[in-house]
Write a protein that binds this DNA or RNA. Structure first.
Lengths: 186, 205
DNA sequence: GCTTTAAAAAGTAATCT
DNA sequence: AGATTACTTTGAAAAGC
């Protein structure tokens, strides 16, 4: 039996940072190749990196959001690229700005099919949301770690809302033990 | 003094008018859906509770009224799909679904997932299918759901597939299109659910 | 509340061949 | 009847309406 923890895969990391400098997004949009900027639609400028693949939202305040990276290392690498691009445009960027991970999305596999109907009742209807007419996943909110898990009939799941990779591991452990206690795993 | 008093009257009247509007909307939609009076009463109670708990702030009265009716139909065991509900409401399906999940959570309605069998009598009668087909469809739903096939699947599509399969087994064939139309799902969904169900039942179609 | 970004899960749906 | 594309859900940040 594979430990479900070993099946955890980070799918997306969202992080925020700032260059400590105000920006004229209009001119950045002109000079930065591949930049998407439509202030009518959204106040941030979108800049995509290819390697690693990610999207950076750059704001007038100099604050930046990076999303789409597959690891915290990739987030740092992506943002390093963004910082260098801005420096090429003669923009002052702090030495190494603090990068804060805001959310990590992971997927995992419990290795067994799940009876979501039984799980909904077993975990307590007040603690879950399961509306298969609207979405096939069962939404389970954990208190510790404070994350949200989406459980599917296939036994696969998505965990989001955590800030550290270990949050997903703890969440999987808790979910597995709760389902085992209820006799709903297997 | 007098001003405050008048303002209170005005607010009270406005609140009263809003409640009347919501209740008349519930009545109008319930009539259009042809659900019994008991369901309208349950919907009214849910709406009043939502009002009392201040859940309407930031949401439309129509949206909460529609969601209350959707919840009431389910509670009373005669569910209408979000698709059907949205046809008699001016609120779109997505918003009804969101609002329903919100009030359901906040009011602690503890709603159980919809049992596809609950759709069988109504869909079958619209298709003019016999009691025998209904019984067979229920059997298919019961057995395949026990095997875990229901997880994550929409109740209407699941019921539609079982009814389609039962109509074939009982020599009262309805086409996938006919069943899809009354259940408001696509033929593709019926086909997919049907294949899984007959396989699980050990039937060869 | 909304707007935008990215990614996974699985179901449903629209559209085209 | 496939195949494709796209939309549903979860989470978080950013600035502005």
């Amino acid at each position: 039996m594979t430990d479900p923890k070993d099946t955890i895969n980070i799918e997306n990391v969202v992080a925020s940072t700032g260059i400590g400098q105000e920006l004229d997004l209009q001119s950045v949009a002109m000079d930065l190749e591949g930049a998407d900027y439509d202030p009518e639609q959204f106040p941030g400028l979108v800049y995509r990196t290819q390697n690693p693949k990610s999207a950076a939202l750059i704001f007038r305040s100099g604050k930046i959001v990076c999303t789409g990276a597959k690891s915290t290392d990739d987030v740092h690498e992506s943002l390093r690229i963004v910082f260098d691009k801005l420096r090429e445009l003669q923009i002052q960027v702090n030495e190494d700005p603090e990068i804060v991970v805001q959310n990590i999305v992971t997927s995992a596999d419990l290795g067994r099919n799940l009876n979501l109907n039984a799980i909904a009742i077993g975990l307590g209807l007040e603690n879950i949301e399961y509306e298969p007419e609207q979405f096939p996943g069962l939404v389970y909110r954990l208190d510790e770690p404070e994350v949200v898990a989406l459980l599917f009939g296939s036994g696969k799941l998505v965990i989001t809302g955590g800030k550290r990779p270990v949050d997903a591991e703890h969440a999987v452990d808790k979910i597995v033990s709760r389902l085992e206690d209820l006799g709903l795993l297997e | 003094r007098l001003r405050k008093w008048q303002e209170r009257i005005r607010t009270k009247d406005a609140g009263e008018r809003n409640l009347q509007f919501a209740l008349s909307e519930i009545d109008r939609m319930a009539s259009a859906l042809g659900v019994p009076r008991s369901v309208r009463e349950v919907a009214s109670v849910i709406y009043r509770r939502a009002l009392k708990e201040d859940l309407i702030r930031g949401r439309s009265i129509e949206g909460v009224a529609t969601s209350a009716l959707y919840a009431a139909c389910r509670k009373e065991g005669i569910p209408r799909s979000l698709e059907e509900i949205s046809e008699v409401s001016r609120v779109e399906r997505k918003e009804i679904g969101r609002t329903y999940r919100y009030i359901s959570q906040e009011l602690g309605l503890e709603m159980r997932p919809v049992d596809p069998k609950k759709y069988v009598p109504r869909f079958c009668s619209e298709l003019e299918l016999s009691e025998e087909v209904q019984t067979k469809a229920n059997e298919i739903i019961e057995k395949t759901a026990e095997e875990g096939l229901l997880s994550g699947k929409s109740p209407t599509g699941y019921a539609a597939a079982a009814i389609y399969a039962a109509s074939l087994l009982c020599n009262e064939k309805k086409t996938q299109r006919e069943v899809a139309d009354v259940a408001q799902v696509t033929e593709v969904t019926i086909r997919n659910r049907y294949q899984e169900q007959i396989e699980a039942m050990g039937i060869h179609g």
